[in-house]
Structures are given as structure tokens and as C-alpha cells.
Design a protein around this nucleic acid. Structure first.
Lengths: 215, 215
DNA sequence: TCACACTTACTGACTTGTAAGCAAGTAGAT
DNA sequence: ATCTACTTGCTTACAAGTCAGTAAGTGTGA
């Protein structure tokens, strides 16, 4: 709400410029996990600091002590979930080149065991397109990064003279199926999410190679 | 509409069981259009009845007079947007068989001229997976209907012995690309939404025909 | 005349965020 | 090793606002 960008620091202890105590990092993690759960199950707008705080075992003012504002907390949650230490817990390192494509399908399969996180991303990504949403920049950057990564995976198996724009179309479509399938799967868990992603990728490879017919 | 307890009507004038005046239908439409705009740009939870009412030229109590509750209004909006008279304004009737697939790409292209409605569906569909969301049933049914419709479009061009499950995978994936691309496009309008959908459909046809290689 | 389409006024629940204070941990000096 | 001074990590209390929904009343058209 008010412009922070703290010129003074009587106001915000949110940006931990000072010397945090040893157990503070733990507490922050507890809050971030609680926030992901609440934002995931309720959405950002309906999810309240009160509920997050209770889940983390504090008052809502305690949460604000650490993160300053609800907006800041959301961004922190998203960045925390993307950070490397968590990624290593979740799976392995991202493989280079075209192996990435098989890895994507494997990730989709893994995601079926953690509906909460999937729900968080699906809900927040779509919510981020609403006016003035604090996570808009995060997801714009995220899609951009993913697109380039996946373009790099399609490049070595596409014809050598394939234009960038064509690779980008395939990459965008790949991300889109994964995101779109998540919403369908969350509403109706019987749909075969990994099979749909795998079929789409296989089809897009054929398309890149010119092995498909126009509609 | 089912007549509720006909003896008294102290509580809800929301279900128009009585005799509405001629201009009432117009007013309701104005409210529904306003609601779609507001829910689309702000999301359901952040979008307020006050804002909808102002856009429709009333007080928020007036809106509640017509729809009873915010939940009811959301469901009414979604059903209104899906109703035939609106569809005919938006485009043509849905073609049968495999022509539907080309029609889908055309719809995607058309959707680029009405970002507001696209945003509404994208945001609300994802939001609907959150706990106790009033639109969950609507979107579950909608996805189910779309899936069967698109399965019917793939069936005539797939090999005759293609199992239903395989058609369903292709249909789910098709819907998923469209939905997923909408979010990417809303965040970054330079992505080629129709091309991605077209490529995916072409690829899925190849996949259904067994013309693709396993990953 | 009387139901319908509203408006005004209000309630109570929730919201994020702020202010101030307190207890415990930490650092430094002795 | 202990006392002191300061910081950190909270809490309680409060402020200010927004929200959906209700109740009651008004005017108007059928």
C-alpha cells in the first residue's frame, strides 16, 4: 500500500538488513510453506494473513514482521519455491538438450504426488493476469525463461534451418499443455495428465519436422 | 426456474419466479456484462459487487435484488456467456465432425479481439479449483462437455480401432493448449497463440495416426 | 392496488497494516 | 562469568477500510 523503499528503517523490519538470529531462517520457511498452502487452496486474494499465521503458529502481525506486506510475502513464496535447494529436494537437476523433454513428462508424473503445489502454481499463474497483481512480473519472467529453455531442447531435434519463431511456437505450446492439463486434472483427477503432455510433445516434434498435414 | 415455497417470499427476490417487467431482462444483461468485466479484470474474490453495480448503473443492493448473492451472480454470468444467443453474436454455430478442429483455431484467433472475455474464463477456470469455489461444478461440466465434443472431432480422422482413452488424451491436450496459451498470451501478447494451437492439433492428429516417435 | 425494481441505511464480519511494548537472545565490557 | 545495552522476534491492541448481505421504505408501471 504505502510506498516502502525504506529511506529509514524504523518502519520495516521486513527486509532483513540486520543480523537475524539462527532460528529465524527456520521460522521464515515455516511461514513460506504455510503461505504456499493457503495461497494454493484459497488463491492469493481470498487467502488471508490470519490463516497463514495460524498455520505457521504465530499471529498475523508476526508474519508481517518478517515480510512487511502480503504482496512481499507472495513474491517471496514464489521465489522460495523456485530456489535451488527446494528443486533438489523435489527432483534432480534439469538435464541439458533434448533430454529435457522426457524430463518434463517425468516432472508431470511427479507433480501428481503433490497436488498442493500444483494448485498453487496453477491458481496464482492465472490470477497473475488480473489488474495490478503482484505476481505478474514473476510469471512473465518465468514463462520467458521456460520458453527459452524448452526452445533449446527442441532445437537439436528440429531441422537445422528451423526458424526461431517456429521453435518458440512449439515451446509455448508445450508449456501451455502442462499448465492447462493441471487445471483439468485438479478438477477431474481421472484425466491422464502425463499421457496428454507426452502425446503433445511427440506431436510437436513431428510438426517441427514437417511430418504433419495442414488442417 | 423452480418455484420456491410459494406461500411467502420474504427472503429472496433473486430467483425471478414472479412476473418480471419488460425492461428487467435488459437490466439483468447489463449487470451480467458488468460482472463479467469485473470478475475478468479482478478475479472473483477481489471483484466486488460495488464495482459491478457502478458499472451497471445501480447500487450493489440492486444487484443483489436480482441475483440474491455473489455466488449466484457468478454462476449466472458463466451460464449467460455460454448461452446460444450470445454464441451467435460471437461467431457461427459449432460445426460438426472434424471441421470443429479448424473452427477451434479460428475461435482462438477471434478471441484475440476480446481479451476481456478470455481473461474472465482463464482467471475463473483456474480460481475454480480452490476450496469451495462456486464455479467448480460449472467448469467441471464444461471441460467434460468440451472433451466429448472434441473427441467426436478426432474420431473420424483417427484410425478406426482407436480406443476411447486415446481420443480422450488428444481432446484433453487440445483444450489444455488453448487454456494454457491464453494465460501466456495475456501476460505476453507477442506469443503466437493461434499458431501454437494449430501446431498442437496437427501434431496430435499425427500422434493419433501413430506417425510419431516415442520420446 | 399491488407487485416489482429498486434505494438508503445499516450491520457485522474480515481485511491489511501500524504502533507500542515486552521478553529473550546476543554482544561487548568488565 | 556476569552485568549492561541493544537488537530481534514476536505479541496485543488498534486503526481504517472493504466486503456481502439484510431490512425497510419509496415510487412506478401494469
Amino acid at each position: 500500500m504505502p510506498n516502502n523503499t525504506a529511506t529509514r528503517r524504523p518502519v520495516a523490519a521486513a527486509d532483513r538488513a540486520q543480523k537475524p538470529r539462527p532460528r529465524t531462517a527456520e521460522t521464515r520457511k515455516r511461514i513460506l510453506d504455510a503461505a504456499m498452502t493457503v495461497f494454493g487452496t484459497r488463491g492469493y486474494n481470498k487467502g488471508s494473513l490470519l490463516e497463514i499465521a495460524e498455520l505457521a503458529g504465530m499471529t498475523h502481525a508476526g508474519v508481517l514482521h518478517h515480510f512487511g506486506s502480503k504482496d512481499n510475502l507472495l513474491v517471496a513464496v514464489l521465489e522460495y519455491r523456485d530456489s535451488d535447494d527446494v528443486k533438489d529436494l523435489d527432483g534432480q537437476h534439469v538435464p541439458p538438450g533434448s533430454e529435457l523433454l522426457a524430463h518434463l513428462v517425468e516432472t508431470v508424473r511427479l507433480n501428481m504426488t503433490r497436488a498442493g503445489i500444483v494448485q498453487g502454481y496453477a491458481v496464482l499463474a492465472a490470477e497473475s493476469v488480473t489488474d495490478g497483481h503482484p505476481a505478474a512480473d514473476f510469471f512473465r519472467d518465468r514463462f520467458d525463461g521456460l520458453r527459452h529453455m524448452i526452445m533449446g531442447a527442441y532445437a537439436p531435434i528440429a531441422p537445422r534451418d528451423t526458424p526461431e519463431a517456429r521453435l518458440e511456437i512449439a515451446a509455448s505450446a508445450t508449456i501451455a499443455v502442462m499448465d492447462g492439463m493441471q487445471v483439468q486434472w485438479l478438477l477431474e483427477p481421472t484425466v491422464d495428465m502425463p499421457a496428454a503432455v507426452e502425446a503433445t510433445i511427440a506431436g510437436l516434434i513431428a510438426w517441427l519436422r514437417g511430418a504433419t498435414q495442414p488442417l
